[in-house]
């Protein structure tokens, strides 16, 4: 561990994943579809052969799809699996569900948001009005038997019950809280001691981090704590909740990271083509995960031309005029 002082949480992706992600863990992934997916960390999980992971996400794209495709995932709780126009439904996710390779439980985005929020506040459950009359409440992906035998799962997916505070007693939905073993998020800035700053949209990263037992943050830039302390209104998580800070420039590639780079249309289109068949998908894993064991090698393979093409305009936060077909 290359520490300059004993408060430093800086470590390599290899060390962070090796120490903090265990087989069978309930793992929350930050980001959203094509933005700020923790890709460097996901590739490291695949290289280390982690298995039987239970992913909990709201709307996830590339990191979820790669982990599912690589066979690291046994269970998935999810609201949405897609990367916008590049894969309206994530490709390995779709195949895994259709072939019955993973156990899946569907919720809505608001429901998953509330479940993480409840977990972050130490609430046992949380009510809402979303979903009454839908099959999301009627159809359970995880059976009652699985739920009663697995300590990490609540015994019910959700319950509909009369509003106890209303004279009309109208039905409301009760959702179980979600408390992940570990949350993986990629942010723009962090200090070695775990102060973090997210630019652009925060999605649900703050709730996911606060609900988790362990937290790995990867970041574009490691900056002095004094810089982040000058404008603390901008900071994201309590630093003492962060267990590891991984310096991973372009650590969300091929998804976007506001102010740093856009999503990479060429890479995402290539992925779509290769993910369709097992053989080409395994070639993708070989080329982009196993034969690129660290971030520098990976970025070398992406190449300076494509990295320059997606570099964000510092005022707009994305790459204007990027060919996104």
């Amino acid at each position: 561990m290359t520490t300059r002082d004993n408060k430093s949480k800086l470590m390599s992706a290899e060390e962070a994943v090796g120490r903090l992600v265990k087989d069978g863990d309930l793992v929350a992934l930050g980001g959203f579809t094509v933005s700020r997916n923790p890709m460097t960390l996901a590739r490291e999980i695949i290289r280390q052969g982690k298995k039987d992971l239970h992913l909990a996400v709201h709307s996830q794209g590339q990191a979820m799809d790669l982990l599912v495709g690589a066979g690291c995932v046994r269970r998935l709780e999810i609201a949405y699996g897609g990367t916008g126009r590049f894969a309206p439904t994530c490709i390995r996710f779709r195949q895994a569900v259709q072939k019955g390779l993973i156990e899946i439980e569907d919720y809505s985005n608001f429901q998953m948001s509330l479940r993480f929020l409840a977990g972050s506040l130490n609430l046992p459950f949380i009510p809402c009005r979303s979903g009454v009359g839908s099959d999301i409440l009627e159809k359970w992906g995880f059976s009652a038997e699985v739920r009663s035998s697995e300590a990490k799962l609540p015994i019910h997916k959700a319950l509909v019950s009369p509003n106890p505070f209303s004279p009309r007693q109208e039905p409301v939905v009760f959702l179980p809280a979600l408390t992940p073993d570990v949350a993986l998020v990629h942010v723009q800035y962090a200090s070695a001691d775990g102060i973090t700053r997210i630019k652009g949209l925060k999605f649900l990263d703050q709730e996911q981090v606060r609900a988790a037992s362990r937290v790995i943050v990867s970041c574009e830039e490691v900056v002095p704590a004094a810089f982040l302390r000058q404008d603390p209104d901008q900071n994201a998580f309590p630093p003492f909740l962060v267990d590891a800070v991984v310096h991973a420039p372009l650590g969300a590639h091929p998804t976007a990271c506001h102010l740093f780079y856009d999503y990479d249309p060429r890479h995402l289109n290539m992925y779509r083509q290769q993910a369709g068949a097992d053989e080409t998908f395994h070639q993708y894993l070989k080329d982009w995960v196993f034969d690129a064991p660290d971030q520098e090698t990976y970025l070398g393979q992406v190449g300076a031309v494509d990295l320059t093409r997606i570099r964000a305009n510092t005022q707009l936060g994305y790459a204007p005029g990027l060919d996104r077909r």
Binding site: V34, R36, S59, N109, K202, Y263, Y318
Partner: peptide
């Protein structure tokens, strides 16, 4: 100023009146 291709596209974070999150 450019069309977003996903609801998490960085184009939905630019020139906003507020950048926030799902909640």
């Amino acid at each position: 100023e450019e069309l977003p291709l996903a609801v998490a596209d960085p184009r939905v974070m630019s020139g906003t009146s507020l950048n926030s999150g799902l909640i």
